[in-house]
Amino acid sequence: MHNIVLIRHGEAAKSPTESDPDLTEQGRRQATELAKDLQRQYPHGAGVRLISSPKARALQTARPVSNLWKKSILRSDDFIEIPSPENIPLAQRGAWIQEFLNSSWESMTSEQVLWRRRILQALIKQETDQGVHTTLIFCHFMVINTVVAAIRGDHRVTQFLADYTSQTHLSLKSGSGRLNIVRLGQERASRNQIQ
């Protein structure tokens, strides 16, 4: 059995014109607190692999625990945020996301279908390496929700409102390619400005 933890990034600076925003001061504090919590759960990171979306907010969330454990972070495009439809300019992405949250995964574009497939395939490949029992993946709200929806067989886009630095625990039975939800991460109270 391999443990996978999907960790949403900390609070990022919201901007209609910035495609890769940094964490806010609050987000940096959240990342520091997360590192302390992960140290309690996995002392010194023994047997733990770190993977992150290449987006700044995810990498910056992973960095405190990476520094604490002196472990490298594997950057993976497989866990990047959902692509917008081609005709949606960056300045309108926020409005598109808010509308998309109330829709169905069945309404995805072909590019988004490939994005989702890549996430699920990448998760199934996280078989236990020698000495590795847990993979922490620093990623995004929509990544977490698409995984939960796929495991549940539920077409609703929003499965739950994963809060900043929330930890959604999954298990992967070795050799089966079967993912299970162990527990969902902490939820936030509001849908406003999912980023």
Rank of each mutant, 00 (worst) to 15 (best):
K70F: 05
Q167G: 00
S171F: 11
L34T: 08
R178M: 11
L179C: 09
M108Q: 09
T135M: 00
A95R: 14
A35R: 07
G153Q: 05
I119Q: 01
V113L: 04
D22E: 07
G94W: 07
S84Y: 15
L68E: 13
R188P: 00
A189E: 08
D20P: 02
E33H: 15
A46G: 12
R183N: 13
Q112P: 06
W115D: 00
F100M: 12
C139F: 08
E18M: 08
F160L: 04
V132Q: 03
Q126R: 10
G185K: 09
Q60F: 06
M1R: 13
R116D: 00
Q121F: 12
E187C: 05
L34Y: 07
T134V: 05
T158W: 08
A13G: 05
P16S: 06
T128D: 04
T128F: 02
D78V: 10
A58P: 01
S15Q: 10
I88T: 15
T168C: 02
S53T: 14
K70V: 07
R75N: 02
R188F: 08
L101R: 09
E33W: 14
P89Y: 15
G47R: 09
N67V: 14
Q98C: 01
G185W: 06
I82G: 04
D22S: 10
A35H: 11
L114Q: 14
Q186G: 02
Y42H: 14
T128E: 06
Y42Q: 02
W105R: 02
E106S: 11
S84H: 15
R57H: 12
S15R: 14
S110D: 13
E33G: 07
I137A: 01
E106A: 09
F160I: 09
S107C: 02
I80D: 03
Q41A: 09
Q41N: 03
R118Y: 05
A62E: 00
Q41I: 05
E11R: 13
I151M: 03
S15L: 09
H155Y: 11
P43I: 08
T146V: 13
R8N: 05
E99Q: 14
R178N: 11
P16F: 13
L6W: 10
N180F: 09
Q167V: 03
S176A: 07
L114I: 15
A13T: 15
R63H: 08
Q167N: 01
H140S: 13
R116M: 06
V157N: 02
L172A: 08
R183I: 06
